[in-house]
Computed example of a mutant assay.
Amino acid sequence: MNRRAAAAVLLGCGLLLLAGSQPWVLTVREPAPGSLRTRGEVSGSALTPWVTALTLVAAAATLVALGSRRRWPLLLSTASLLGVCLGVVVTALDPTAAPAVGATVSSRTTGWLWVGLLAALLATGGALLATVTPRPTPTSERTSPVGAAPSAAAQRHEAERRASERAWRELGEGRDPTAPD
């Protein structure tokens, strides 16, 4: 997994967990007609409790993807974060869906909802980037940079390969490669 994409996912998940614990919606409620109105605030985790759970799943899957070569953790992380984005967007579009006691007279969103939305988009973008980026093959990670001196093990391996090729070539020409010259 691309480390930058993983950093974006983990940073977005951390910000989303922080934003989810803050008030997303400020409400004014009237418990009964004609009674005093009360102000209230509803946190992101109270509005959409499954967003926090999916964020934790996405963060854990990202950490698993960093340590493995499998594709399923990336897909799980991406799917979880798409669900998180959906939940935050639905909450942003309809803040009056906040749980309330009595009739809600008015409600408005706070900046934490938008921080949560940006964090969800950052994390989802990182997960999508990691999912569509081709993964390096195991051999490309072990090759040395151009111009670097080969290691002793690489030199031994190359000498053995050449000796084996020479033996097969001599056999193909009808000579015994084990006979003394």
Rank of each mutant, 00 (worst) to 15 (best):
R4G: 13
A6E: 02
A8E: 12
L10P: 03
L11Y: 08
G12M: 00
C13V: 05
S21I: 07
P23Y: 08
W24C: 00
V25H: 01
V25D: 00
L26A: 12
T27I: 04
V28K: 03
V28T: 10
P31T: 01
A32D: 12
A32H: 07
P33D: 06
P33C: 06
G34K: 03
L36S: 12
R37M: 09
T38Q: 14
T38H: 12
G40H: 06
S43I: 06
S43H: 06
G44E: 07
G44W: 08
S45P: 08
A46H: 13
L47N: 08
W50R: 14
W50H: 15
A59H: 02
A59Q: 04
A60H: 13
A61H: 05
A65K: 06
A65P: 04
L66S: 12
L66A: 14
R71S: 09
W72H: 14
P73V: 00
L75H: 14
S77Q: 05
T78M: 13
S80H: 00
L81G: 03
L81R: 04
L82C: 05
L82I: 01
G83P: 03
G83S: 02
G83H: 00
C85Q: 06
G87N: 02
V90W: 11
T91Y: 05
T91V: 13
L93I: 12
L93V: 14
D94R: 15
P95R: 01
P95D: 00
P95C: 02
T96I: 09
A98M: 01
A100I: 01
G102T: 02
T104V: 13
T104N: 04
V105A: 01
V105F: 02
V105M: 01
R108P: 05
R108C: 09
T110S: 03
L113W: 01
V115K: 02
L117Y: 05
A119K: 06
A120E: 05
L121Y: 07
T124Y: 11
G125C: 07
G126C: 01
L128P: 03
L128Y: 01
A130F: 00
V132T: 15
R135E: 10
P136G: 01
P136A: 00
T137N: 10
P138K: 05
P138G: 05
T139C: 09
S140W: 08
E141D: 13
T143P: 08
G147C: 04
G147A: 04
A149Q: 15
S151C: 04
S151D: 07
A152H: 15
A152N: 11
A153V: 14
Q155K: 12
Q155N: 10
Q155R: 14
R156K: 09
H157Y: 10
E158C: 07
A159Q: 15
R161G: 00
R162S: 10
R162W: 12
S164W: 09
S164R: 14
S164A: 15
R166T: 15
R166M: 14
A167G: 04
W168Y: 12
L171N: 06
G172W: 07
E173R: 15
G174L: 02
G174Y: 00
P177F: 03
P180V: 11
P180K: 10
P180G: 11
D181M: 10
